[in-house]
Amino acid sequence: MNNEPTKFIDENGLRVDGRRTDEIRPMKVDIGVLSRADGSCYLEWGNNKIISAVYGPRELHPRRMQRPDAAVIRYKYNMASFSVEDRQRPGPSRRSSEISKVSSEAFEPVVMTQFYPNTVIDVFSEVLEADAGTRTAAINAATLALIDAGIPLKSLVSACAVGKVDGQLVLDLNKKEDNEGEADLPVAITQDGEITLIQMDGHLTEDEIKQAMELVKNGCQQIQQIQREALLKKFGQYEEADTEIQSVPLTKKSSKQETESVDTESSELISGNILSDESSENREEQETDTLDILEDETEQSEDNEDDSDEEDFFVEIVRNNTEGESDDQ
């Protein structure tokens, strides 16, 4: 620690990165960045880079984890191995499991989980670059991803940290302040000021905590404003990713069913095509006809008796049809 600066705050009241004590780092937000997720958000906050994805509500496996009265929120916080200076060992760690747990609990009071019993809402927050305050940044990103996924929330959730350096309270610690400061207090709050997450590292007096809470509420309001603006800006930019539609051609059924469909529905439908425009009413009539045929086997056998006449007739029709087709080409 020989290169530790003697002061975190200079005589002008500015911090090492030039901010005042009650200023947050610049934040940049991009919503709907992943096409395969139901909702997603990319967030840059100072040097933090977070990508958050929401899938669901969807079926929850294993089933024993299901709640019969509400959806389960499964939040996964993960740091990419390249997100910090010394390579982070991939996979879950004590720290990431803890953050995942407290972050999922930060959303439980605001998400209307009771609308989706037996399901899960999966939230994945991936830290691409870390620079102190990643759990709060991840919560801010996850809120927007949840909203993007159309999940009902009672309120936006915004999170920000407050800490103490040089005996002074500062908002939104950067890495240096976090590592070498005296305290770190991350907080997540709703629009009404309800606290959904609070943790503390280091030491603060009672008075300091009270002051810190005022400071952090202010910070969260600024973040909420950024979140709102990002959402309002997104409207009107819904283009490619969100209007992507899929179409699946229905192919003829397998051989087994082909035989099935020939003597029931499809042949009727084919003849229906030739005979008439396909309004839904016609369709219905045809269907009832089909059923009649199914039940009335005697009628079919009668038809069958004079095969020879019909065969000629059939050939004629087929010829007509093929001629028509070749004309068309």
Binding site: V262, D263, S267, E268, Q300, F314
Partner: peptide
């Protein structure tokens, strides 16, 4: 058409 169906059956 029905007769054709019967033939195709």
């Amino acid at each position: 058409c029905r007769k054709i169906d019967a033939l195709l059956d």
